[in-house]
């Protein structure tokens, strides 16, 4: 399949009074047309910053992409100006935000918010824009779209608003949709509906989706591939099946163990002890060392090399290094 996004060694940092926060420290991944990549990790691991950087939406200053490349359809985005980025935002790459209660402007009608992006980027009449807007509301499953266009965000429920946010993101038919925790703020029943909507939209439009989440249940439902982030790095990546059934990294294993399971009754949940490292001064070795049950001296000193388990699946951990294996067996 056609590769549409290629991120290579992306570094993003924020300059604060306290010093430089290295939020993203060398992230690489790629994405094909019609594919869903889930970026998973706990709060503060840099997954949202990665997502915002792809559209260059991080506030600059204090934030900046200090190194690396983002290639979207063979075009380098890192050195584009804001003006050039504006022609890509909303048209080629769209974004969905976490909280639908705050993502819509309370003082503008849904119709205005739906069509303004379309009018900005395409040379079309108000009437055509309206027809397209009605089509989109229909696609995301909002009844009575004609009347709904004239209403304001406060007249919609949370789930309905997220559907509208999705409609806004898709109205210019982008190739890539970045969804930053799109279901976190919603009820569980609504979550399921929104996830089904994602699947249906992907089948109909063949849009590639980057799903940022910390909810492994969501990942299991919609993702094709998963990247696990920790302290600004992707420490493991693979297909959904590989990652859920043969996790390599102790952190991924810990994440999976900390999910409540219906099939094992009475067992205690196993949380991962400790907290992620301070990104003002990230450790030079593996950032998970302090919390890792298998930590060795090497982990603390040197960042582990990549271990490629299959074509798609890799983990960055010393446990899989030949030298360590040899040492352990002797």
């Amino acid at each position: 399949m056609e590769k549409i996004l290629e991120v290579n060694d992306l570094h993003v940092s924020f300059l604060t009074y306290g010093g430089e926060v290295k939020a993203v420290r060398g992230v690489s991944f790629d994405l094909h047309k019609g594919e869903t990549l889930a970026i998973v990790g706990e709060s503060g691991c840099g997954k949202s910053v990665t997502a915002s950087s792809l559209m260059k939406l991080i506030p600059t200053p204090p934030g900046k992409i200090s190194q690396g490349s983002i290639k979207f359809k063979d075009r380098e985005l890192v050195n584009l100006s804001d003006k050039q980025m504006r022609k890509i935002r909303g048209v080629d790459i769209s974004m969905i935000f976490q909280d639908p209660m705050t993502a819509l402007n309370p003082t503008l009608t849904i119709g205005t918010q739906l069509t303004e992006g379309l009018k900005q980027h395409r040379n079309i009449s108000n009437k055509e824009a309206k027809i397209k807007a009605l089509e989109m509301l229909d696609l995301v499953g909002i009844p009575y779209p004609e009347e709904r266009l004239k209403q304001y965000p406060h007249q919609f429920s949370g789930g309905m608003r997220q559907r509208i946010v999705i409609a806004i993101a898709l109205i210019c038919e982008p190739d890539l949709l970045i969804a930053d925790e799109p279901t976190t703020a919603l009820d569980v029943t609504i979550q399921a509906q929104i996830l089904e909507l994602f699947e249906r939209i992907q089948q109909e439009t063949n849009v590639a989706i980057i799903l940022i989440t910390h909810d492994l249940g969501v990942v299991a439902k919609v993702a094709d591939r998963i990247a696990v982030m920790y302290a600004g790095k992707i420490i493991e990546s693979g297909t959904k099946h590989e990652l859920f059934y043969e996790p390599l990294h102790p952190y991924t294993q810990g994440l999976l163990n900390s999910i409540p399971r219906l099939d094992k009754k009475g067992e205690k949940l196993e949380p991962i002890d400790g907290t992620p490292p301070d990104l003002f001064s990230p450790p030079q070795g593996c950032p998970f060392t302090a919390r890792c049950p298998h930590a060795m001296v090497a982990c603390e000193k040197v960042y582990p090399p990549r271990y490629q388990a299959s074509e798609e699946h890799y983990g960055e951990c010393w446990l899989y290094d030949e030298r360590v294996k040899k040492y352990q067996s002797s």
Binding site: M55, L57, M85, R86, K87, I88, R89, G90, V91, S94, M95, F97, Q98, D99, T102, A103, L104, N105, P106, L108, E116, G117, Q120, H121, V165, I168, A169
Partner: peptide, 19 residues
């Protein structure tokens, strides 16, 4: 968030500020 969303739509800074 709705300002970030407006930026994500690719609107011009002037439109975002005024509208």
């Amino acid at each position: 968030d709705y300002i970030k969303m407006a930026r994500a739509k690719g609107l011009s800074p002037m439109t975002i500020i005024v509208k």
